[in-house]
Write a protein that binds this DNA or RNA. Structure first.
Length: 127
DNA sequence: CGATTGACGTACG
DNA sequence: TCGTACGCCAATC
């Protein structure tokens, strides 16, 4: 796995722990996305304390492509619910992965996004 | 080593 | 409401 020190069960893992990289924190959050739910690059970036680094989230996921991983990267879409990264998936298409989890997709657009949207800021940052 | 480029998002006109 | 500009961090050119 990519996680070496702080595990996902530790909330606010990014604030006081500088020992892990931005990428590793992205991987941790992605691993937490529940089945049948999706989140956005920006939401992850915001949760990591870098609200304007959403591009890096995508970049981090891109790094997963060249390596073996078991992360649900297909559950990360852009803010509009578009499957912008589908072209980068090898093997099973991103659209099928989501459909198998019960996510409705029409023309690369996730339906009822607001219902299945999973915001790490709300779920993981509950004080 | 500087410039460009991304699985994006926000700000501004 | 729509189009353009820029930021963010890391990797590639």
């Amino acid at each position: 796995m990519f996680v070496t020190k702080t595990m996902p069960n530790n909330k606010r893992l990014h604030e006081n722990d500088k020992s892990i990289s931005f990428f590793e924190m992205v991987y941790q959050v992605v691993a937490l996305i529940p089945k049948g739910r999706v989140t956005s690059y920006g939401a992850i970036a915001k949760y990591l304390g870098a609200a304007r680094s959403s591009r890096m989230v995508g970049w981090a996921l891109n790094g997963l492509n060249k390596t073996e991983h078991n992360l649900p990267a297909h559950r990360v879409v852009n803010r509009q619910g578009l499957l912008t990264g589908k072209e980068h998936f090898r093997g099973i298409p991103m659209e099928q992965l989501l459909t198998d989890e019960g996510v409705e997709i029409v023309n690369n657009q996730i339906q009822n996004l607001s219902q299945i949207y999973w915001d790490p800021n709300e779920v993981l940052n509950v004080e």
